[in-house]
Amino acid sequence: MSSPLPARGLYAITADPHDCDRLLPQVEAALKGGARILQLRDKHRRLAPAEARLLLRSCRAHRVPLIINDDIELARQMGADGVHLGREDTDLQRARTRLGPDAVIGASCYADLDRAVAARKAGATYVAFGAFFSSPTKPHATPAPLDLLTTAKSRLNCPIVAIGGITPENGSALLQAGADYLAVIHGVFSQSDPEKAARRYADLFETHAELP
């Protein structure tokens, strides 16, 4: 585990892959477009560990951390930078024990600030809130209000991820409210040109940095 967590930026999450031959060039394009973190989301376990390592190789070449969704043992086996855990996944303390003190461990907190506070106390590296907008991945998610990001930023000393229906058009409001990362699935990986799509999100962070 060797890629440090960046201060801010596009957090690209893969759509459930059908095969590595299709996914790998999409990932490479997203990384070239400016993704600063990559999460492998493989709910159906279609990729073999050897194929997942090809993604890790690309991430290493771009100095981008690779986070594995849900699967602590895969993250440990392949030497990924960390894991992201949701409500139904293994508890954070077990993940920290298995992956070690330097691993990145993210926690989905939905629209629940108390859950985020507890996750941080349990050792989460970052917390994620959402969905902020309508999302095809989580169509029934409880909507998260923008001011949740502002409150979380004032109470938590860790990076904050916003997720759920984020587009280049609505992402600026999330950054202004306090998000450090914008997590995007379909806005990058369902596009005909993932590199161009990723760059549009990456540009938001440059614009936000220039605002007074």
Rank of each mutant, 00 (worst) to 15 (best):
S3Y: 07
P6R: 02
G9R: 10
I13G: 03
T14R: 14
C20W: 04
D21K: 08
G33Q: 08
G33R: 10
A35D: 08
A35F: 02
I37H: 04
I37K: 11
L40G: 05
A50V: 00
L55S: 01
M78E: 03
G82V: 13
D91G: 01
L92K: 07
L92C: 07
R96K: 10
R96P: 06
T97D: 09
G100H: 05
A103Y: 03
S108N: 15
S108H: 08
C109A: 10
Y110D: 09
Y110A: 10
R120N: 15
A124C: 15
A124G: 15
F129K: 13
F133V: 03
T142C: 01
A144H: 12
L146V: 04
L149H: 01
T151I: 06
S154N: 07
P159T: 10
I160F: 02
A162T: 04
A162R: 11
I163Q: 06
G164S: 12
G164K: 10
I166S: 08
P168L: 09
S172V: 05
S172D: 10
L174V: 06
A179K: 05
A179I: 11
D180R: 07
V184N: 06
F189S: 09
Q191C: 10
A202M: 13
D203F: 14
F205T: 11
F205P: 09
T207D: 11
T207V: 04
E210Y: 12
L211T: 05
L211K: 06
